[in-house]
Amino acid sequence: MTGTPRIWPLVLILAIFSTPLVIMYLYQIIDSVASPDPGSLIPGELDLSNWRFLWERIDSGRPTIWQVTFNTFLFASTTAFLVTLLSTTAGYALSRLNMPGRPYFLGGLIILHAFPTITLIIAIFIILQALGLFDTLLGIILVKAALELPFGVWIMKGFYDTVPWEIEMAGVQDGASRFRVWWELVMPQVKPGLAALLIISFLSGWSEFVLPLVLAPGSSTQVLSTFMNAVIQDDATADFGLFKAIGMYYSIPVIVIYLIFQKQLMNIYGGGTKG
């Protein structure tokens, strides 16, 4: 749709609504490297002291940023890997394999897909304590992976559904077992799906806040979200420059992935999926 006569009113309304967000984005960047004087919005001189958390501990009680970053990366990547692995096999079984009770599994999958898992956190909290996994990275990895699983299986099933049946039939006729057909013939067709799921679950793990907050509150298992939250909570002076610098650092992977995969991400999130 191009060449419209009255496009400017529309743009104006959009711009007005977008202004708060744009201001927030803008000052998110500005304040992290230059603190304006109180009562002013004009950026002061370049000031990197907000980034001091990179080379020193903000205060003695906290783990170093590198420890926290490592935790976050381990948490997000292991979760993403687990989700993708389990979804790849389960999605295929639900999409293509004959098995008793298949309708129930599919119905259950949809219900789980919609079910608000956060309501279970109290019970999960107690289960983790009973299993001895409370306040461990392994514990939150397992929980996060399990909670993301219905979404992952659903996505992967969708990708498998688009692979023509004839390819599998041809494989079977060519003498290959169903396992081999899956591994050698079908998997190469769903590689984009694998990549998408890997990226989405990584992003989801990277941003996760409530699970680590509740299930791994100790300082040795802190991830960037809980680290940043703790810094904000404990700082009486509201040092927004410091918070924003940490926020910048925290969001780098998100922004990078966003810039590279913007279109694909919009497509996947637009496919009526969970978020």
Partner: peptide, 19 residues
């Protein structure tokens, strides 16, 4: 099972392995 039947099939859309 189909794998052991020794039947060659040509499908309508050929079903070649794209990769």
């Amino acid at each position: 099972p189909a794998q052991q039947r020794s039947v060659g099939v040509v499908f309508q859309n050929y079903a070649l392995y794209p990769h």
